[in-house]
Design a protein around this nucleic acid. Structure first.
Lengths: 236, 236
DNA sequence: TGCAAAATGTGACGAGGACCACATTCGGAC
DNA sequence: GTCCGAATGTGGTCCTCGTCACATTTTGCA
């Protein structure tokens, strides 16, 4: 509680995370601080929904801390997990830019701290800093590439290959220690929904990798023992 | 050969097609004509490659006439057809905007007439007409949504469902007559590559639809006989 | 017009993975 | 710590679809 007049105490930590993100780095020191002031940071508990697929999109979000799932639901209720996001990742960009409804839902996989920047503020920022628009285009391009690869994986890799690839990606993006996938909150059902498979099939595939000493499982921590073999299994 | 000084004879037809495209409509009458002058229209024969996946991206393309396939190739040589484009569609946007290499190849499926607009010209246009950048964001958003749906389809629909959905989409986007898919140049192998399946499997699925009177096949023309049933089969 | 190459239609076989059903273990809330 | 619900581990069955192999037709050239 050291806040002085007009300076909320939690601006600093928010700005610190924003400064780590390439998208916001183009704003410079002062731009980042004013951005942090322009939005609202909020905490969510595990299993909460930050927004629903179909909602109008009125904010851009930054995950300051925690873990969330990007979930796409079909008309029949089938769910596919499009992505797993952790500290420093952004979400909700798309609906903002073209004004269409949210194309997926965001569900927290563990307690999370989320920063929301209203659309109007973002547009102001983009007017002041043209580089920000470029960064957005870059980010969308990256998203298109990732989705293209995901579609190709679904078409060409078998379940075991998709799982091996997924484990490598998770270890790379969210891994704390090198070669360790330790994501409390991520269940085997989530893994299944990430690669378009059923939960029992994922379990069997995991056991198969264990028996071949490619990975080790203790509780919910997966250790990658043989990265080279996993890469090969994942078609890399 | 009726060109007068500085006014190439084929500017008019190019401008006419550009005027049909929402992306360019924001430029207004004069902007469209100057755009048509700023690029280069070229003809390709069937089976030619307009650009290769991995090439540097130096132009935005507009398909003035014809039919092309967007082909993504994995490291192992497996191919998936991401999209089929016809008159008025654009391609090559992405590599342009984020400066990365072409993420897919473009192959003509029949003789095509293609307009290429150099990156520098496009950036000029975007400076003069801020609305153009908005249209680009809208277009990328749409692309992300389409790819998301494609991934979900691969995960949740069986081969027959994906095929039914594909036929409906093709009829809607490129159909000349209502409810008819008549795309010379599109083989069953292409259909297979569009839905991540093998050619024999697609053939069998087509025959199955024929035997249930959902479609009729004469040569390479497919007529949709029972759209409602097809929509149901495709999970809609 | 005729010929080679490509595209189409089918058959047989097998494996991968979905689906259902259940025992067991784990983890979080009180 | 205890308990209940969720997450994990397996088993068995069946069906889809990939794979290989071919005969037949169509297409696009020469």
């Amino acid at each position: 509680m050291n806040g002085h007049s007009g300076v909320p105490p939690d601006i600093q930590p928010v700005a610190a995370v924003l400064a780590e993100i390439p998208l916001f780095r183009v704003l410079g020191e002062s731009g980042i601080v004013s951005t942090a002031r322009a939005g609202l940071a909020r905490r969510y508990r595990t299993g909460q929904i930050i927004f629903h697929q179909g909602d109008p999109g009125e904010s851009l979000y930054v995950l300051l801390d925690g873990l969330v799932k990007v979930v796409f639901t079909t008309e029949h209720g089938d769910e596919i997990v499009l992505n797993i996001l952790s500290r420093g990742d952004t979400f909700g960009e798309m609906a903002l830019l073209d004004g269409s409804p949210r194309s997926a839902s965001i569900v927290t996989a563990r307690p999370s701290w989320v920063f929301a920047l209203p659309r109007a503020r973002l547009l102001e920022l983009m007017r002041e800093h043209p580089g920000l628009a470029d960064e957005f285009l870059r980010m969308l391009g990256h998203m298109v590439r990732r989705l293209t690869g995901q579609a190709a994986d679904l078409a060409f890799l078998d379940l075991g290959g998709r799982l091996a690839k997924l484990l490598l990606q998770l270890a790379g993006k969210h891994g704390t220690t090198e070669g360790v996938v330790n994501l409390p909150g991520l269940t085997q059902s989530d893994l299944a929904a990430l690669i378009g498979a059923t939960r029992p099939a994922v379990n069997r595939a995991l056991q198969s990798l264990v028996s071949r000493h490619l990975i080790a499982i203790e509780g919910r921590t997966i250790t990658l023992l043989d990265v080279a073999a996993l890469r090969k299994r994942g078609g890399l």
